[in-house]
Write a protein that binds this DNA or RNA. Structure first.
Lengths: 339, 339
DNA sequence: CTGAAAGCGCTAACAT
DNA sequence: ATGTTAGCGCTTTCAG
């Protein structure tokens, strides 16, 4: 900033009181100690000088930066921007600021980013990058940094998390497809090293079993990506086992399915129904518009931020994890089999 | 952070030298003043104690926060995440960190966000929110805060900007459509209060004139949004003037065109060709895949960050604005007329 | 080549 | 009800 900003001392001098008086008057928690007259004079002088507290000095003194670090796999995945808006809106209302970093799903990058954030002395962390067994998170626990997980959680479950009920979410898609008459249903599963991939597979398995349907048609992908989805779909079509529907573990995988289907000249949903997961922006614009599971993205971010703020305030009382409810969004990528 | 971090004093005590010696040894710029022996001992002790400089104290002393503010209209617009990655990668390499805020295209929110950022004492700003006449930016000039604009610029042009050549970009689409045989071409223009909206309209106007074609089929929108595009397209179809192609000022407007077309049962590109602008992620998945103008999103961010860092280092030498080159991406939303 | 000392702007005991 | 004082961790003149 160019212009030299007014400091507490400047205000104090102008009013003719001590620096600490100004500090206390300007602090809502201690303002009550003063006569209305002093409060008025100080407030006016502060206004006249355009006084703005220096957060750097505040931080150095209090050891709090009013900053939290947010780790996400990839900002260009449209799933995350709405989550971030939820986080930033909630943090902003409490005068906190988010610092965001992408990890590209690489644990090494997560470690580096976390180091930078800790270096910046963030007051807390929100991580969307948890693996089921996560060394990085073990460190965080050991260091007692306030932290909440979103979207994915760890097996150990020692850290408060805001996630959706993935088992139930996939159950919804199975019910929907079974209701349409499908019996041979395949699952393109995500990485089993992360809770979302694992829970969705579990959800598929349990729901299919409930209907006494076979669960042999499962391809495991090592990434929630379009190419991985395309490869899996291609593999599925190679050993054609007469499946009529595919449940992809997320929307990116489902888009990959579309690609592979198109390359083989198979048409969705007439020949194969496809479902996704997340209801990312723009999947309603695909051809055909994708049937998928909607998760409350903004709410996930907002809730996580709320929890983190609580945790920062009272680290001794970790807030309970939150399980949000997914809903099925039926569009045109699903239809009765053999349509 | 929980664990009390080692300070300079701790390191100094351990080595048996003065605090300032440690500071100087750890600073690459002043390290050369010392005997190799001292350097080694200090470095080792710092390593052993896990010393990490406290950026807060550094900032308080030096008046630099190694932080820059980034203002964007809306993170959920897929145009921006790649730009941000460019910014963050470049800033990160120089140990700078970005603070991001959304304005939703509201000048009031821009002012608020900027206030918060200045409050946080950012060293510089990157703004993707400029209007052609922008009071907020006038303030920034007056306060001499290092700043670079991206995507949009101001009429006054007093601030270095990284933008693409929008006149030329739209020219590309006109050439393409004319080459396909179109003569009656409409333009769904963006807000004329921002440079992108204005320049693209200008580009349309000039290119059409070059071909001696009429430029009467223009609808001005007050937002670069899907509903605005749909409304404009609907209006265009009402007074049907026999147009065979529509150039939308950006991809969101083009998607709105798709909506309106679908509602009227008109098929693209057979009855109407449509073009967009920006080549946002996922427009290749639309039906039909959108012909659009690609801008180097990551490069815009990276270049802007580079310029800002230079400006912060030497405020007296403002870097020249950069005009990046757009390219046409031909997909399936354009075809010869009356196909 | 290294040490001493001041001070960035703020908060929070502790005094009165 | 207000003032004094010390100090957060660092950089940087100024001495030597």
């Amino acid at each position: 900033m160019a212009r030299a900003r007014a400091t507490l001392r400047d205000v104090a001098r102008r009013v003719g009181v001590h620096e600490s008086t100004v500090s206390r008057v300007l602090n809502p928690a201690t303002r009550h100690m003063f006569t209305p007259d002093v409060v008025r004079r100080v407030t006016e002088a502060a206004g006249a000088l355009g006084y703005r507290p220096n957060p750097i000095a505040y931080s150095l003194k209090t050891n709090r930066t009013l900053t939290v670090g947010v780790l996400i796999p990839d900002l260009t995945n449209p799933l995350f921007p709405p989550v971030l808006r939820g986080i930033e809106d909630t943090l902003g209302a409490a005068d906190y600021t988010a610092i965001i970093a992408n990890t590209d799903n690489l644990e090494a990058r997560a470690a580096t980013a976390l180091d930078r954030m800790k270096g910046r002395r963030v007051d807390g962390l929100i991580l969307a990058t948890a693996r089921r067994e996560d060394a990085v998170i073990s460190d965080i626990i050991a260091e007692e940094v306030p932290c909440v997980l979103i979207n994915r959680t760890t097996d150990a479950g020692k850290i408060p998390a805001v996630v959706t009920d993935d088992v139930r979410g996939i159950g919804l898609t199975v019910e929907h497809l079974v209701g349409l008459g499908h019996r041979r249903i395949a699952h393109i599963a995500g990485p089993q090293t992360v809770s979302t991939g694992h829970d969705r597979y579990l959800g598929f398995f349990e729901a299919m079993r409930r209907h006494r349907l076979d669960t042999d048609l499962v391809i495991f992908c090592d990434a929630f990506s379009e190419p991985a989805g395309a490869a899996a779909m291609a593999e599925l079509m190679t050993g054609d086992d007469g499946f009529t529907a595919v449940i992809a573990a997320n929307d990116m995988l489902a888009i990959g399915c579309y690609d592979a289907l198109a390359r083989q000249g198979r048409v969705c949903p007439r020949q194969v129904s496809v479902t996704g997961y997340n209801d990312m922006p723009f999947v309603d614009k695909l051809s055909p518009p994708l049937t998928t599971v909607r998760i409350p993205q903004y709410a996930i971010g907002a809730e996580a931020a709320r929890m983190l703020l609580a945790l920062i305030k009272t680290p001794a009382e970790p807030p309970p994890s939150v399980l949000l409810c997914p809903t099925l969004v039926i569009r045109s990528s699903t239809a009765p089999p053999g349509g």
